[in-house]
Design a protein around this nucleic acid. Structure first.
Lengths: 107, 107
DNA sequence: CAGGATCCCAGATGATACTG
DNA sequence: CAGTATCATCTGGGATCCTG
């Protein structure tokens, strides 16, 4: 995405994962490798264009690995790089907090 | 913000803090109470309108507390509610990760 | 199946002016 | 000082069509 990183670490993280779908892409790829179509469905309702764009950025940022199989019909698998996997604590923290918030609301 | 929460905890969290400035507002208010103007300056370059809108949503969502002093000139202080403070682990996780990412990039 | 190329839009953000 | 009110802008996102 950008190649100039903000000085603030929090802003740096925001720059890389603050788009609407990136966090959800991480959530799903943390479960393991997925094909483009599988990922698309697991996300809910992303358009191809947007999903592709997000994945390309994440690949460029070193978060996602893209593996193309020279087959017909085409097959492309996405997985997290080590850097991508290292975001797990962030996603988990969000999951935990969201879970508690939902519970509070129910009460 | 919304009153209907998504089923997924991660999405719930996203719904509440995914706006451009909210995470940074949290980052700064985690350091303690701030006046409107102070918060504005510490964020960098938000417009009043946007900052106000974000704070109002966060107040509605129970993350931020707004205290108005009946003085002239006006004085309004913002602080985090307990629910807001409970987001600290999320922000910290982002800070840690961003910090490491910056280091990796430098190398 | 994966994704490139276009056209289009809403909603978030920004800039400015005004006020209790 | 901390807003409110408007108007202008911009871009992420969506819908559709096409293709190797």
């Amino acid at each position: 995405m950008q190649d100039e990183l903000p000085a603030c670490p929090v802003e740096t993280t925001l720059l890389l994962i603050s788009d609407k779908w990136k966090v959800l892409i991480l959530r799903d790829l943390l479960g393991g490798t997925l094909r483009f179509g599988e990922l698309r469905r697991s996300l809910g309702s992303v358009s191809q264009k947007v999903l592709t764009a997000n994945l390309r950025q994440m690949e460029h940022d070193g978060l996602v690995h893209r593996k193309v199989y020279p087959e017909v019909p085409p097959r492309v698998e996405y997985s997290l790089t080590e850097t991508g996997k290292s975001l797990r604590p962030v996603i988990e923290a969000m999951r935990d907090w969201g879970s508690n918030y939902q519970a509070e609301r129910a009460a």
